[in-house]
């Protein structure tokens, strides 16, 4: 069976590389200008053949490369930006909005509205224009990606929670779910405290330079 991205496979990889290049670009510009990096690290993936086929089938869409890369499915390319501090998430969003050829189509704020299980993250769906033809035959091409932004603490929590999802035969599920929720709220508390301390250090720096 042919890969779900068919003849577009290399172009999808090109979109992911270009997006990573753009994200690293603004971070490097900020560092070179003497600022602190706005993220700790980025990871990226192309949705696996199997997951994409499952998703298309679940949504009742045609299981074709064209559909997988259409505006109906936005996450063939997925990027995760992991930051040290909460405010950096919003700085990244600001930088992403300012990127040439990139448009934010949709956003979900799970920071202000954490999911009931404790999940916190900020999700963006973006379109990105590329000089090469897209799966609908247009040039320049319109491609899509999902960007998830979260702190290191939120990211390690999500990694832990992810393990629970794939363990069907886990005993004491209710207890673990409740404990995960409690820990999510404790990590959020630490994230806010660290942001507060960081702001205070900045204020001290300002006062010093004013003297």
């Amino acid at each position: 069976m042919e890969n779900i991205y068919g003849q577009y496979k290399e172009r999808v990889e090109g979109v992911m590389d270009d997006l990573l290049y753009k994200l690293n670009g603004y971070n490097n510009d900020i560092i070179n200008a003497g600022g602190d990096p706005v993220f700790d690290h980025i990871s990226a993936r192309i949705k696996s053949d199997r997951s994409m086929r499952e998703k298309l089938a679940r949504l009742g869409l045609a299981v074709t490369p064209e559909m997988a890369l259409s505006e109906n499915v936005h996450d063939a390319v997925g990027v995760r930006i992991v930051t040290c501090f909460i405010d950096d998430i919003f700085e990244n969003i600001k930088q992403i909005r300012a990127l040439k050829g990139v448009t934010v189509l949709e956003e979900k704020d799970y920071l202000t509205n954490a999911k009931p299980n404790g999940y916190r993250s900020y999700h963006l769906i973006i379109s990105i224009e590329e000089p090469f033809e897209d799966a609908a035959g247009a040039t320049p091409g319109m491609w899509y990606a999902e960007i998830q932004l979260r702190t290191i603490a939120m990211d390690s929590w999500a990694a832990l929670e992810h393990r629970l999802k794939y363990k069907k035969q886990i005993s004491d599920t209710a207890l673990i779910v409740a404990e995960l929720k409690r820990v999510a709220d404790e990590l959020a508390s630490c994230d806010v405290s660290m942001q507060t301390i960081r702001d205070m250090i900045k204020e001290i720096k300002h006062e010093d330079s004013a003297c």
Binding site: N113, A114, R182, D185, E186, A188, S189, V192, S193
Partner: peptide, 14 residues
């Protein structure tokens, strides 16, 4: 009892 602050969202308090 749980050191929890709740409104739209919830968070732990020290």
């Amino acid at each position: 009892s749980s050191s929890e602050l709740r409104a739209v969202n919830s968070i732990s308090l020290a």
